[in-house]
Write a protein that binds this DNA or RNA. Structure first.
Length: 412
DNA sequence: TGTCCACAGGAAATACGGGGGT
DNA sequence: ACCCCCGTATTTCCTGTGGACA
């Protein structure tokens, strides 16, 4: 009896202190497209990305009196909402067109992971004809022919949204040549291309013949400012979190910090999410102080994520260095290399030359895992002094992670 | 002043792997 | 199915270097 009540009480208190109610709304990847649009609908209603939307509208407006908008290129750093804004806009545009009986369709070619020209065109073909996926062995030319064939007889507007163009590997030229020169001439559609890139100079090494042919309009997405971020975050808080558990000023702080350092909405939401996670784990409210800790955590995760996604050789090098390094005595390249060699044999990994190892060291230095500075000891040689001054906490984590990567039991 | 240590780091050669053309 | 080509990773070879030491 008493036990029952106790348990019930505990559960109740857990419910009360629960912070994350709908985790999905903290991570766009988990949302369905229509949910994303709904979120955006609300965000855009708050004047966020207003100028951009307005510019887009102006750009595409000629469609409604039978004109032909030129191609468009969107610039902006990651997390400024290029993709999502454009998708949202295209979606709107489509429904308006439907209402006005204007034929229009769009296709989103997602290049967030780099792909060769062939695969991109293949994707395009797939969108046009959901049944087929062309095997390799068929030539680029043939593939292009197929695409043209699929588009024959269609009328109206056709918008191809090429997301992250600069990720087209290898023969970007033939890809663009096809889209810009060949396709518009062989089909009766009014083709509009929309490109996205975070490199301002992606057109730089393009074939000048195509470049001169390509009539393009440019549009810039600025990083979010604190005000925008605040809107975005507060929307997420409403959807995903229990407001009771969030202290005054947390929202403002996250917005301020994020806008100051990157203006990246995704990272801002991540910070919010992390803060909530820590608070929930500890059964407290989300406080300002907690936000700082979440920042630290993210910082820490950066190192871990970085090393996790690095080549194994780099991991081994880092492991050797941070285990060999002791307190304040600096470590010299030769010793580090010995350690690395020893570790490699233990790990059954082919050890690289010292020359290559030296490059690994500079890389680690660049990423900020270690500090390396050359020092000369006169006739006792000239070498790099390696020091590590990351917090011990991070080092332990890194060691642990690397051992895991190598399938070794970190108990030791 | 010259020597010489223990590397740094550039250049060219080579190995490798996978996509693409045929 | 096969080969070629190309970009990347690594090796090989090499020249350079600051300063302690004689």
């Amino acid at each position: 009896m008493h036990a029952n009540i106790k348990i019930e009480k505990q559960i109740q208190s857990l419910l009360n202190t629960r912070i994350i109610i709908q985790r999905r709304f903290l991570d766009d990847e988990q949302l369905e497209r229509y949910e994303q649009f709904n979120v955006l609908e609300e965000i855009f209603a708050l004047d966020v990305r207003d100028t951009e939307i307005r510019d887009l509208s102006a750009h595409f407006a000629p469609m409604f009196w039978g004109g032909h908008p030129v191609h468009l290129s969107l610039y902006g750093k990651t997390g400024t909402g290029k993709t999502i804004t454009m998708l949202y806009f295209l979606n709107m545009l489509q429904s308006i067109c439907k209402k006005k009986k204007i034929e229009m369709r769009y296709i989103h070619l997602d290049l967030s992971t780099p792909k060769p020209c062939f695969r991109v065109l293949n994707d395009l073909a797939c969108y046009l004809d959901a049944t087929k996926r062309y095997k390799k062995g068929i030539s680029l030319d043939e593939l292009m022919g197929k695409i043209e064939e699929k588009l024959q007889g269609h009328k109206g507007y056709f918008i191809i949204f090429v997301d992250e163009v600069d990720h087209v590997r290898r023969d970007m030229d033939s890809f663009l040549k096809f889209l810009v020169k060949r396709l518009p001439q062989t089909v009766s559609l009014k083709l509009i291309l929309v490109f996205t890139s975070n490199k301002l100079n992606w057109q730089e090494n393009m074939d000048p013949r195509i470049k001169s042919f390509l009539k393009i309009n440019e549009l810039f997405f600025k990083p979010y400012n604190a005000h925008d971020l605040k809107q975005i975050l507060s929307l997420r808080i409403n959807k995903a979190l229990n407001q009771q558990m969030i202290e005054q000023g947390v929202l403002e702080k996250i917005a301020a910090v994020s806008s100051k350092t990157h203006g990246d909405a995704r990272k801002a939401v991540e910070l919010l999410s992390k803060s909530a996670l820590i608070a929930e784990r500890e059964g407290t409210k989300v406080t300002l102080e907690l936000v700082d800790r979440a920042l630290d955590d993210i910082e820490k995760d950066k190192y871990v994520a970085m090393i996790k996604s690095s080549p194994r050789q780099l991991q081994a090098a880092l492991y050797a260095i941070i285990t060999r390094t002791t307190g304040t005595k600096p470590l010299y390249t030769g010793d580090a290399y010995d350690g690395y060699n020893a570790f490699c044999t233990k790990i059954k990994l082919r050890a690289l030359t010292q020359r290559a190892f030296s490059d690994l060291v500079s890389e680690l230095d660049m990423y900020g895992f270690i500090h390396a500075r050359i020092s000369s000891h006169g006739r006792y040689g000239r070498t790099k002094e390696l020091t590590v001054n990351l917090p011990k906490e991070i080092l332990d984590k890194l060691r642990h992670v690397i051992l895991m990567e190598f399938d070794l039991d970190p108990v030791h």
